[in-house]
Amino acid sequence: MIVRIMGEGQVEIGDGHFPELNKLDDELLAELEGGDEAGFRRTLGALLDAVRRLGEPLPDDALEPSELILPAPDATLDEVRQMLGDDGLIPG
Rank of each mutant, 00 (worst) to 15 (best):
E31K: 13
A38R: 14
L29C: 06
G34T: 03
P19I: 01
D15G: 15
G14N: 02
Q10W: 00
L29D: 05
G9K: 00
D36E: 06
V11N: 02
E20Q: 13
G35I: 00
G14E: 01
G9L: 04
E31Q: 11
E12I: 09
G35K: 07
K23Y: 12
G16Q: 13
D36F: 15
N22G: 02
V11C: 00
L32G: 07
L29H: 07
E12G: 10
I13Y: 09
D25M: 05
E27G: 06
L29G: 06
E27T: 14
E37V: 15
H17Q: 09
G14L: 09
G35P: 06
E33I: 08
H17V: 08
N22H: 12
G16T: 12
K23N: 10
A30K: 11
E33V: 10
G39N: 02
E20H: 12
L29I: 00
G14K: 11
V11M: 04
K23W: 09
E37T: 11
I13E: 05
L32W: 04
G34N: 09
L29A: 09
D15S: 15
N22M: 13
D15W: 08
E12R: 04
L21E: 08
G16L: 09
E31I: 14
L24C: 04
D36R: 12
D25C: 11
L28D: 08
Q10T: 13
K23T: 12
K23V: 10
A38L: 14
G35F: 01
E20Y: 14
F40W: 01
E27S: 04
D36W: 13
E31L: 09
E33N: 11
